[in-house]
Design a protein around this nucleic acid. Sequence first.
DNA 1: CGAGCGCTTGACATAGGTCAACTACTGTGG
DNA 2: CCACAGTAGTTGACCTATGTCAAGCGCTCG
Lengths: 245, 245
Amino acid sequence: MRIVTPPEFRECGDCPIRYRAVCSRCETDELAALSAIKTYKVYQPGETIQWAGDAMEYVGSVVTGAASISETLEDGRRQMVGLLLPSDFVGRPGRETSPFDVTALAETVMCRFRRKPFDELVTSTPAVAGRLLEMTMDELEAARHWMLVLGRKTAREKVASFLAVIAGRRSFLSKEENRRNIAFDLPLTRDAIGDYLGLTIETISRQFSALKREGVIELQGARHVIVPDYNALLAVAGDDSEAEF
Amino acid sequence: MRIVTPPEFRECGDCPIRYRAVCSRCETDELAALSAIKTYKVYQPGETIQWAGDAMEYVGSVVTGAASISETLEDGRRQMVGLLLPSDFVGRPGRETSPFDVTALAETVMCRFRRKPFDELVTSTPAVAGRLLEMTMDELEAARHWMLVLGRKTAREKVASFLAVIAGRRSFLSKEENRRNIAFDLPLTRDAIGDYLGLTIETISRQFSALKREGVIELQGARHVIVPDYNALLAVAGDDSEAEF
DNA sequence: CGAGCGCTTGACATAGGTCAACTACTGTGG
DNA sequence: CCACAGTAGTTGACCTATGTCAAGCGCTCG
């Protein structure tokens, strides 16, 4: 049994995602309006944040942790259609229900807004609406990029692409020296990675082993990864090296 | 050599997409502002509307025809990441370049706005910004749905899903009687369908033949399709029948 | 009539899925 | 402190869906 982490940031001023989330363009008074309808909630790994089809009481931002957006076929085949990391927004204003399941992958803190008052804020506050449009367009672009991965890449390229995404969210990669020896813990099980990439856990496992054997990655246990050379990883992923930034 | 169709709709009042496009919420004066920066252009099948990486001079709406948004790997593997049909919006306000190629699939009429003045209109006109946010969210949802198709469906299910999307854009399917004998011409070659579904033309062809053999579809030539029973098609696609509407 | 393109069909190859056994942790109770 | 049960991951042997390669069909255009 894990201990629930109490959120240490009641105040937006201390918030780790203050300058990347929906609220990033808000001034003091707009922030106050948002604060008035916000609450924090902690989710445990595996816990459902939102069921597809259920009424959506809240929208909000991932503050820490990781969550998945996914869709499942009747026979159980599942595809992750979005990976939510800190500052990402969950939920669609102006909609009663979500078409996708949202699930915590790791222990995750959400900054939640009650949906109805938030809807009104979106229409009345250009700072929120504008940022939301920008974030939605970013996500659409990321989703489309991911469609290339799902539709056309080999298992090997898929796994390398996945590792590149995770490594990329940790490091400022614009500087060449930051592209060496990137180390991180995977926030996903092999199962979740399989759902993300449209592959089975066995294939994931084999590709990890192959990449390790070839020195593209180093593994310490199943979850801790070191990428000695980010550019080499991108090459394996089949990406046009600089396309992402 | 085909004859260039002259656009018969200089006036927004006659426009076939007046109530679905970015301008759908605009009043007379806002419409006038849009009209001031709009021009029409006709693209021939195969013609490029926007190259990935090139400066984006225009954004705009598909009025008639069909176009693809796609991304290509260095070795030529291509994935269509968006299918643009009448009323769909092309381009991202606030961005200098597009990360994707946009190509006409059939003869296509675009209603184009010069990008910079359009950018300003987006920030100053809530009717445009709001509609754009809604359309972007719809596209994000569609892109995510498509990720399930690409990542987890079989070739058979993919082809059926594709046909369901095309058939669905023609017919108002909320009425049961409209779900019988839907007939249409495919606006895509087998090659383009392959790029859309992440499959080869041979696999597409085999699946078309199989669906025909089983009576799920009828074919007259390679392009004209009749769907005798839309619900049966959805069943083959593996879709939770009513999920889409 | 012939060339060319879009499409179909067949024979065969292979990437990745399936099934099954095994390893390595992690936490629990005696 | 050990035994063990349960969960996550790895590896191997084999199978199958889809890709590859090749031949041929049937339009349309010249």
